[in-house]
């Protein structure tokens, strides 16, 4: 199992935002988490990557009980095991594309691997952007760099938060294509959280969250 949740209650300041009694996602079972804003999608991703811990219940990702780890242990786990694609792509503007990818490798505690960086950029069709500054990139190019950063450490789990909601239909399709192909090439399970109904048909497994869950 890639993900196992049980008896999960999560929230802030005494207010429960998300309740999931049980959830299992198998290795390679790409999953879409669908629901309107405020239903707890982001909270679920935060818990899966160890940014937040639940109020109660257990969280097991890649056979690690995240709810029992310390803050820095969870930081370390996230750096190595999780690839994150956020809605706001946010590359570090002071660093080049290469610098941003190297940073991700170093923060995970891996050696920097320039060959792997070039290969990943090439597989995303942006090999020529290696030494570009983030502000020189188009929106689409920046998203590809963000995807490259998410997969650069060959994570077990890729979490994507609203990766397509700002894109037109064509770009939306190609973004999902890239996510699938990258997840496949590094053997990762993909979980996408969105309110974007357009990509629903692409997933075999859909987890529908609603505000009523609280």
């Amino acid at each position: 199992m890639q993900v196992e949740l049980s008896g999960l209650r999560a929230g802030y300041g005494g207010r429960v935002v998300l309740a999931l009694d049980a959830l299992s996602i198998a290795d390679g079972e790409h999953t879409l988490v669908l629901g309107p804003s405020g239903c707890g999608k982001t909270t679920l991703l935060n818990i899966l990557c160890g940014i937040d811990v639940p109020v109660s219940g257990s969280v097991t990702v890649s056979n690690v009980r995240l709810d029992t780890l310390s803050v820095s242990q969870r930081d370390h786990f996230r750096g190595r095991q999780i690839g994150l694609v956020m809605q706001r792509l946010h590359l570090i503007p002071a660093l080049t594309v290469e610098g941003n990818l190297r940073l991700a490798q170093k923060l995970a505690g891996f050696k920097t691997d320039d060959t792997h960086i070039r290969g990943t950029l090439a597989s995303l069709g942006i090999a020529d952007k290696l030494t570009a500054q983030p502000r020189q990139l188009s929106q689409g190019e920046a998203q590809r760099v963000a995807i490259a950063r998410a997969v650069i450490n060959r994570p077990a789990l890729i979490l994507a938060d609203e990766p397509t909601s700002a894109l037109d239909d064509g770009s939306c399709d190609s973004a999902i294509d890239l996510l699938f192909s990258q997840a496949k090439s590094c053997g990762a399970t993909l979980i996408v959280a969105t309110h974007d109904q357009r990509i629903k048909p692409r997933f075999s497994r859909v987890l529908q969250l609603s505000k009523a869950a609280a």
């Binding site: 803050v71 370390h76 996230r78 750096g79 994150l84 956020m86 570090i92 940073l103 923060l107 995970a108």
Partner: peptide, 16 residues
């Protein structure tokens, strides 16, 4: 601020 948040997301501990 966004950079700092990102560093943490990418696995940096607070000491870094």
């Amino acid at each position: 601020r966004a950079d700092l948040a990102l560093l943490r997301v990418l696995g940096a501990d607070r000491a870094t």
